[in-house]
Nucleic acid binder design. Structure first.
Lengths: 99, 99
DNA sequence: TTTATATATTAGAATATTCTAATATTAATA
DNA sequence: TATTAATATTAGAATATTCTAATATATAAA
C-alpha cells in the first residue's frame, strides 16, 4: 500500500466528523476564538478544544494566542474548496431526492 | 447540530480509509471488476468487497453485473475533484517538507 | 497575589471501524 | 446437474474514535 494513501486518509479523517465540519465551516472566512466556536455551535468547550487539537495536529487549522483568547484559522483555502465540492454533491442529491 | 453536517461527515468517511482511496483512484477513469481491483491492489477479495459495499451504500460508486463479473464505477466526477484537491494539499506540503 | 476567564488535557465508558477467516451466493461452463 | 470462478456476507477479535466529566494550565484583571 502506497503510504500516500495513508496520509491522505488520515487527512480526510478530519472531515469525517460533523462537529469538525461545522467548525471548518465557521472558520471559512475569519479566525475565531475557542469560545466563539463554542457559542456558535452550542457544543461543550472540552470537546471543541479536542476537535481543534485534532485538526491542528493534521495541519488543517493553525492557532495564535491574542491575550486570553486563542484564535483558530484554516491553513489552506483548498480545504474550503474540498468541503464545498462534497457539499455540492450532497446538494445535487438532495435536489434529486436521493436521501 | 444541522443534520447536513452528519450526512456530509458520513460521506467523507469513505475517504478516511487508505484502501478505499486506492480503489477510488483506480476507478477514476474506467469501471473495474472486483477481481481487477483485487489484483491491482494486492488486497484480499473479502476486504475489497466490503469496501465496495460501503462506498456503494454511500452512493460514491455504483455497480453493474456483466456475466460473472461485477463492475464498479464512480457515480460522480466531483468525487475525483475532491480527491485531487486534497492530494494537491498533500503534494504542496511534501514539497515544503511538512511531513 | 488572588480571582476569574479562556483554553487544554486526561481518563474512561460507549460506540464504531477494520481486518481476517470461513462460508454463502451467483452465474457461466463442462 | 455438477463444477468452477467471481462476488458477497458473516462473525468476531483488535483497534480507533467519540463524548463527558473532572482537572490542569495560562493569561488578564482586581
Amino acid at each position: 500500500m502506497n503510504n500516500l494513501y495513508e496520509i491522505h486518509a488520515d487527512m480526510c479523517k478530519v472531515f469525517s466528523n460533523p462537529t469538525r465540519l461545522e467548525i471548518l465551516n465557521l472558520l471559512r472566512s475569519d479566525a475565531l476564538s475557542v469560545m466563539e466556536i463554542v457559542e456558535k455551535t452550542g457544543i461543550g468547550q472540552a470537546n471543541i478544544s479536542q476537535h481543534l487539537a485534532i485538526m491542528r495536529s493534521k495541519g488543517i487549522v493553525a492557532s495564535k494566542r491574542r491575550g486570553k483568547n486563542v484564535y483558530y484559522n484554516l491553513t489552506n483555502p483548498k480545504i474550503v474548496k474540498a468541503f464545498d465540492i462534497i457539499r455540492g454533491v450532497l446538494n445535487e442529491r438532495l435536489r434529486n431526492r436521493v436521501f
